[in-house]
Design a protein around this nucleic acid. Sequence first.
DNA 1: GGCCTTGATCTGGCCCTACCAGATTGGTAG
DNA 2: CTACCAATCTGGTAGGGCCAGATCAAGGCC
Lengths: 247, 247
Amino acid sequence: MLTAVSTETSDAVRKTLEYVRHHRLAKGDRLPSERNLSDRFGVTRSSVREALAVLDAMRITERKAKSGIFLRNTPDEGGLDALVLQADLGVTFDAQLTRDAIEARIICEEQAFRLACQRRTEADLAKLHGLLDTYAALAANGRNMADEDVEFHLAVAAASQNRILVRTITPLMLMSTRGRRRYFESAALRQRSLDDHRAFYAAIEARDEAAATALVHSHVYTAAADIWALNEAAAVAQDAGTPDKQT
Amino acid sequence: MLTAVSTETSDAVRKTLEYVRHHRLAKGDRLPSERNLSDRFGVTRSSVREALAVLDAMRITERKAKSGIFLRNTPDEGGLDALVLQADLGVTFDAQLTRDAIEARIICEEQAFRLACQRRTEADLAKLHGLLDTYAALAANGRNMADEDVEFHLAVAAASQNRILVRTITPLMLMSTRGRRRYFESAALRQRSLDDHRAFYAAIEARDEAAATALVHSHVYTAAADIWALNEAAAVAQDAGTPDKQT
DNA sequence: GGCCTTGATCTGGCCCTACCAGATTGGTAG
DNA sequence: CTACCAATCTGGTAGGGCCAGATCAAGGCC
C-alpha cells in the first residue's frame, strides 16, 4: 500500500510505524534512539534517519536535537502537501484535474460558507473585517492580493469552526497559487475580487446562507476558472521554454 | 512556512525545490545526481538523501535505482497522509476534530454521490456491483468488511469522475480505520451496512440524486458516528494501559 | 535529609569513505 | 549505420567518526 518497491528506507518507515503501534506509544512518547532503531531493524542509521525525515516531514514524529524522537501530540498543520508542492513547482496538471480541483473547491467552500453563516463568532467577524480592510488597502494601492485572497477564504473556512474543512480547502486553494498571482495583476479583477469579498463578509455577518451559497457558485467558480486558466497558460509558456522530455 | 527551525535536511528540501523551480524542470525531467546536489548545496550526500526521501514520500520525485532522480509526472495518489497515519497509530483526536471529520466526510461524500448519479459509467456500475457481491459474500460469512467498506465508498467517489474528490475523501475515511474494524465485528451492523450499500448502488444506478443524498445523511452519519465512537473508546482503553505522559 | 554541582553517558545532526551492482554512455570494431 | 563492450556514473547501503547539547545519577555541600 505504501510503496511498490521495498527499499530499506521505506522498510524503516514501516517498521518504525509498526514499532509505535506494537508498543502502544501515545502522543508525546519517546521512541528509541536512532542507533537503537538502527540495529533493532537491522538497517544502518542512514536508512533510519531517512525514514525519520519522512515521518518528521509529515508531522508524525518530532526529532529534538540531542534529546530524542517523540511522537507528535498534535495532528497539526504545517506539513507539506504533494499537490501543492507540485503546483508550486509548475507541474502542469491535465485539464480534467484542474476542473476537478475547481469543482471540489466549490463543494467544500460552499458548505464551509454555509456553516460559517451559522457558526461565525464575533471574533471571526472581527478577523474577517480586518482582512477585508487590508484587502481594500492593497487593492487601492494596486498591490497583488494573492496571499491575502487565500487568507480571507481560509478565514471564512475557519469561521465554519471545522478544522478538517480548513485542512481540506487549504491545498485546493494553494494548488493554484501561480495562477492566482497572475490573476491579481489585473486591476479590474482586483476590484471584482474586492467587491466579492465584501459581499462574502456581508452574507456571513447577516447569516444569509442563500447569498453565501450563490456567491460561492458565481465568484469562486469564475475566479477559480480564471486563475486556473492563467495557471495553465503560464505552464504552457514555460513548457515552450523547456520542452517536455517525456519518457 | 515549511519548518520553524532550519536543519540541513529541511534546507536541502528547500534548495532542491528551488533548483527545480529555478531550472524550470518539467514533469519527468531528471534532477542532478545526489553527489552533484550534495556539493551544489554544500551539504553531505546524507542530508541530500534525507531530503530526497521526504520528496519521495510525498510523490514529488522518484528515485530510480542506479539511474537518477526524476520529477514525477503524475500528481498521483499513494502518498502518506499525516492524519491517516496518526489515526492509524492510535493518536487520540479531540472530540471536536472527530465531529469535524464526520461533517467534512458527509459534505464531500454527499456531493460525490450526487455527481456519481449524474456521471457514473457502465464500468463504474459494474465495478460497484462486483464490490457489492464481494461485500454480500463477506457479510454472509461473518467476515470483517472494513477494507471493502472503504473500497466501496471510494469506488462511488470515483464514479463522480472527480479525482480530487477521491483524494479528499480517502483520508477522511482512513482516519477511522481502527473504529471501522471494530464496527464490523457486530453482525447487526454488518447487515445494516450491506443493506445501505445496496441502497447506494440502487440510487446510483437509477440516478436518484435525492435518494443518494438522503442515504449519505442517514447512513454515513450514523455509521461514521458509530465508528468514531468505537475508535475513541478503543483509544481510551489503550490510554488506560499506557498513561499519557504529556509534556 | 534536601539541594546543588559535576561529570560520564547518551542523543541527534552532520560529515566522510567505501563498496555494490545495475544503468548509462561513448567509443570501437564490424 | 549497427552491434557490442568497457569505462563511467548512479542510487542503495554499510559503517565509521566527531560535535555539542541534553540527560541523569553520583557525590559533595549546606
